[in-house]
Nucleic acid binder design. Structure first.
Lengths: 337, 337
DNA sequence: TTGTAGGCGTTATCAA
DNA sequence: TTGATAACGCCTACAA
């Protein structure tokens, strides 16, 4: 690999001059500029970003930590798509680190990004506690933002969506439409999102003075298979219901299939609501409603804040201005009875 | 950020010794080891990977270039999922660069990864020609592998799946089952994959001496909407057909929906085959067959080769051993008439 | 077993 | 307008 020094020699100037030409900082005559550019051309020179970043103490990269388990599915694709796009729009590069499937590995991933000297970091946590993340944020000078979780201390360093409230709204909607026996398929209950949605379901019932029937609740694992299994379980319990809420669209799809296969109902006969608005879902089951989580808006806000901090924005001030950011889920389309 | 020098001072040793302790190279007494570790602990020292990589001329990273347009959907998720997993299994890190949506941007992405001094690079091309990639591979000393394209010169530097052959097989299957009027929805025809599948369709017809009816072919754009639109177009042309092949599952799903909405057929009445085996598809349309592309196996082979080269494997030799790698698509499940 | 010193390829601060 | 030269933080002979 040809280095800056070789370019300098070839152009008959010093390293410093070449550096100036490349960075655009400092004066340099048009004449030498031309010679340098020619030398670069001839030698096929390419800057070594490692060296540059080491010297400037800036890498122009944002790090993103996401769990492996999120990789499958449209939700992650959308997140990544927009994260990459926005990052590059701001003249930076996104670096992805895999949080895998444990708290330890999630920590490692964060550490890696820090060691790589990413200018800023986005964490989409799965296993780390809110406390630990508050801790991490305070321990490091790099700007860090947390997605999909509500922090206690560094409330301006997180962007989240109120899963509980939106689930409650969805269930309330069903109740308003006259439903009383509403089945619920949870997500994995080791995930905050899963817990929050379940909790929203319970709250909605309580709010409308409908007694909670535990037999109408089954635990799922976010995938279609567990949605189908959930329906089987409900049926084997001998439960009847006129509506069903699944904690995400994948499970909802599996559930509808199972309802159909069991001969219990045709799609449309039981009101089903899912979450995440997987783009292909309506092509499958037109009767499927879904609560859309504004991933795009959330990642956009996240990156904006990060860039703002990198540009020296006074974040304490910013915080008092906008306070805690809560992006509410949009209204559901309404179930079909 | 505390540096190695500070750790050294605190432990009362030299930088070199600290470095030895960390890397595990060279002798160092247990006693000083302990002192160094303690100093690291106390100071919260973290190695600067930029500096380390600059000094060692190794980054332990693999770069991956993918187009933005691939981001959506399960196919990409699976690719990324396994790429990340395998890379980390081999003790390395995956760095993703966005190829966006033009040849220029694809080149830029590759260049970025090279400038970052990734040890090796994987390209999943969308716009670059085979010739240019052959060129790139020869110009750079880093190992480079190309996915989903068949290179002329560096045939051992690519892993691809024979889209034409597998499409031909799928269509032949339909013909064997008695179909004669088989409609075809293409992918984007600026993509090699799209062209190859179309070509497989035509070959199958020719092989069975079935005259080609251009009116049975419509151009799609890989998404469900274009699949639905394709069916509308076919119907508006007054064409009749007993089977339909869409160049991917997303379009197939859209197509089935449109067939249904138009009242032309219920799902199952027209044989439909898609590609890519999107995991959720069978939950939607049990009658949908699909040709599975072995992404997992392909990415696995790709990374294996890369690592092999990094470890100093003699690639010219390797090539003569295994020759050109062709991963054939698995047999389709068979359409329902 | 440990320390010294030079190098990795840039940037950035001074003088000239 | 240009050129030395010292960082940046780490690795690695070589010497001790």
């Amino acid at each position: 690999m040809t280095t800056m020094l070789e370019v300098a020699k070839r152009a008959g100037v010093s390293k410093a001059t070449v550096s100036r030409v490349l960075s655009g900082n400092g004066y340099v005559s048009q004449e030498t500029k031309d010679r340098v550019f020619q030398a670069i051309e001839e030698s096929g020179y390419r800057p070594n970003l490692l060296a540059r970043n080491l010297a400037t103490r800036r890498t122009q990269t944002l790090g993103l930590v996401v769990t492996n388990t999120l990789y499958h599915g449209v939700y992650f694709s959308e997140l990544l798509f927009h994260a990459a796009r926005m990052t590059e729009e701001k003249g930076r590069q996104l670096i992805l680190a895999d949080g895998k499937h444990s708290a330890d590995e999630e920590r490692e991933a964060i550490q890696y990004l820090l060691d790589m000297r990413c200018d800023a970091i986005i964490i989409y946590p799965r296993f780390l506690s809110v406390e630990e993340m508050d801790d991490i944020i305070q321990k490091h000078e790099q700007p860090i933002m947390v997605l999909n979780r509500r922090l206690r201390k560094n409330s301006s360093h997180c962007v989240w969506s109120d899963h509980k409230a939106s689930c409650q709204a969805a269930v309330s909607q069903l109740i308003d439409m006259g439903h009383r026996d509403i089945a619920f398929i949870t997500g994995s209950l080791d995930s905050p999102t899963g817990i929050e949605r379940l909790s929203g379901y319970k709250d909605a019932l309580a709010q409308h003075h409908i007694p909670l029937n535990d037999a109408l609740i089954v635990e799922g694992k976010w995938n279609p298979e567990s949605g189908a299994l959930g329906v089987s379980t409900l049926l084997s319990r001998g439960e009847t219901f006129t509506a069903l809420v699944a904690s995400n669209d994948d499970m909802a799809i599996g559930a509808v299939k199972q309802l159909h296969d069991s001969g219990v109902a045709t799609p449309g006969q039981v009101s089903v609501i899912g979450f995440d608005d997987v783009s292909i879902a309506p092509y499958i089951i037109p009767s499927l409603s879904s609560v859309r989580i504004p991933v795009t808006e959330m990642i956009k806000e996240t990156i904006s804040r990060l860039i703002f901090m990198l540009d020296g924005g006074d974040f304490t001030l910013q915080q008092t201005f906008s306070g805690e950011l809560i992006l509410r889920d949009s209204v559901i389309a309404g179930p079909h009875v």
